[in-house]
Each structure stands twice: as C-alpha cells, then as structure tokens.
C-alpha cells in the first residue's frame, strides 16, 4: 500500500519536473545583457577585488553574509552533537578490546599525516588564485585527523586546543567583518588594498578570511569525528 502510493506520487513528480525542465535553456548564453548578476560578477570581479578565482570573490565578498550563516550552521551542528551525547549518569570506560592496527598502517600514517596537513594548508592559502578555498582545505585537514584516529592510537588528540582554535577562528571572522564596518562603509567590506594581480598577498581581506575559515572547518570536523568515535556504546 505504502509502496503503491509512493510510486504514483513519484511518477507524477517526475513528469512535472521533466516538463518544467524541458523549457529551461541549457547550454545557451542567456545572460548576455550586463544587468544579470552572473555577468556583473564576471566583468567586475577581477578589477574590484583582485582575486583571480571569481567563485572565491563571490563566496567571500559579494555573498559574504551567506558564508557567515553557513559557518554558524556548522557551529550549531557541533554544539548539537555535544548536547545529544552528554549524559548525566556515569558511563563506564570503554575497555580497549579492539585489535591495534597493522604495522604497515602504523608506519604509513605516521609518515602521511604531516603531508596531508601540508596539502590542506596549501589548498586554503591559495584559495583566491586556483580552485580550492577554505572549505576544501579544512575538510582535507579533518581527513588527516581521521587517519590519525584509525592508524596510531597512542597519540592523543588534544581536544581542548582544537576547541580553542575553532572559537578563535570564528571570532577572527566576525572581527574582520566589524573592522570593515569601522573602517569602511558596511559589514564584511573589503577595506585592505587590492594589491597586484596573481600574487599571494592580493585581494584585500579575502585570504585572511579564507585562512580563518580553513582553520575553523578543519578543527570543527575533526572534533565531530572525535566525538562520534569516543562515544561509549
């Protein structure tokens, strides 16, 4: 009964979607005139902000408030995870009866962990010059910490310093926005000088924001994974 009703509903929905999408122009240059937002960002992006990656300047400068909301949502998810797993009565300590990792994995993860962190740092520092940015680099750093959890277990991750890094990075992001309000005209405005093209220190305040976002996302996701692993079943 349930399967029959859901199949009928899905057939109706798919027919509606197909008929609506048939009218949509795919692959044609429908944004020829200059007052559409896409054309405006492409024409003005390089001259006004100085960042070579137009998607980066859209995410950080033109739609910076949405990025602030997204960072807040990640923060709320981490808080919610901590609140769900908090228990008032004492839970007994999880005795380590699981087997330790093999020799190849232990040696490999000790060798690979600094390389992956270096790669993630490269990705979020060069966010305004090549494809990449704060979110991609942060996730790469979090996956390096995941490897550390699986491979070598005797190295304890200091959770307190992760929380400190995450909170400091969030405060720096909002602080830069308020500094834009003080020295410029609006919240999150680009108030530093533009700089030369294709250089590392160009684009005004964009690299600083992306470095703060990279640290925050990496510490946050590593904390989420640590909270899920160490929960006693």
């Amino acid at each position: 009964m349930r399967i029959l009703i859901s199949c009928v509903l899905l057939v109706i929905l798919s027919l509606g979607l197909v008929f609506a999408l048939e009218q949509a122009p795919f692959g044609s240059n429908q944004i020829d005139n200059a007052d559409k937002p896409g054309r405006f960002y492409l024409n003005q992006g390089m001259e006004k902000t100085g960042a070579a990656n137009v998607v980066t300047s859209v995410v950080v400068t033109y739609r910076g408030f949405d990025t602030l909301g997204e960072v807040t949502i990640l923060f709320i998810a981490a808080i919610g995870l901590g609140a769900v797993f908090h228990s008032r009565k004492k839970v007994k300590r999880y005795e380590k009866e699981k087997q330790s990792a093999s020799l190849i994995l232990q040696t490999g993860c000790r060798f690979l962990f600094p390389l992956i962190v270096l790669f993630g740092t490269y990705v979020f520092i060069h966010g305004h010059l090549s494809p990449g940015g704060g979110f991609q680099g942060g996730v790469i750093i979090a996956s390096a910490f995941l490897l550390l959890f699986l491979g070598c277990e005797e190295k304890k991750i200091p959770m307190k310093s992760m929380n400190t890094v995450e909170s400091l990075a969030g405060i720096i992001f909002v602080g830069i926005g308020l500094a834009g309000l003080y020295w410029g005209e609006s919240f999150l405005e680009n108030f530093l000088p533009r700089g030369m093209d294709y250089m590392l220190l160009s684009g005004g305040v964009i690299p600083i924001i992306y470095i703060a976002i990279g640290f925050k996302v990496g510490a946050e996701l590593a904390g989420i994974v640590a909270g899920l692993i160490e929960r006693n079943p």
Partner: peptide, 11 residues
C-alpha cells in the same frame, strides 16, 4: 552551464 565556455578562473 554554457556550452563551449570555460571555468570562471582568471589567469
């Protein structure tokens, strides 16, 4: 997507 166009990154 626009047919025949390239990625939005200047170099």
């Amino acid at each position: 997507y626009i047919q025949g166009a390239t990625a939005p990154i200047f170099s």
